[in-house]
């Protein structure tokens, strides 16, 4: 599937009420590793990556920082893509996930 098709599928899932693990955010190394471990040991499906990653269609503000994909270190601006190997998913700039980091 193309990036656009996967992105559209992800958007549909989120718009149709897919409940994702938005909180707790990955504030420290232990929390990051727990989430990464879940992703590495899951089935790798798009749905699971969205749920475990805690994706939302709008930026989440946390501890005074707006955590949008467009400012995340894993985001490729021109491809509109999350390059974190465990997520590896096309996204939109205004989306957000709990593995956000700058």
């Amino acid at each position: 599937m193309s990036d656009d098709a996967i992105r559209a599928e992800a958007e549909d899932l989120l718009k149709n009420g897919l409940q994702t693990d938005v909180f707790p955010r990955a504030d420290d190394q232990t929390q990051i590793q727990e989430i990464i471990y879940q992703l590495q040991n899951g089935d790798g499906s798009l749905k699971e990556r969205l749920v475990v990653g805690g994706f939302t269609l709008d930026p989440v503000s946390h501890e005074g920082l707006e955590q949008a994909c467009e400012t995340c270190m894993y985001y490729l601006v021109h491809r509109r893509y999350c390059e974190l190997p465990e997520l590896d998913v096309p996204v939109e700039a205004e989306w957000s996930c709990r593995l956000w980091r700058i």
Partner: peptide, 29 residues
């Protein structure tokens, strides 16, 4: 990272400056 920001920043750079610079640089890449 702490709250998504690197715990050790480049020498001489503070957290506020780093966040501002990174957001701008990312948008301009």
């Amino acid at each position: 990272t702490v709250m998504g920001v690197p715990k050790d920043l480049p020498t001489g750079v503070d957290k506020t400056g780093y966040v501002k610079l990174t957001g701008a640089a990312k948008a301009a890449s």
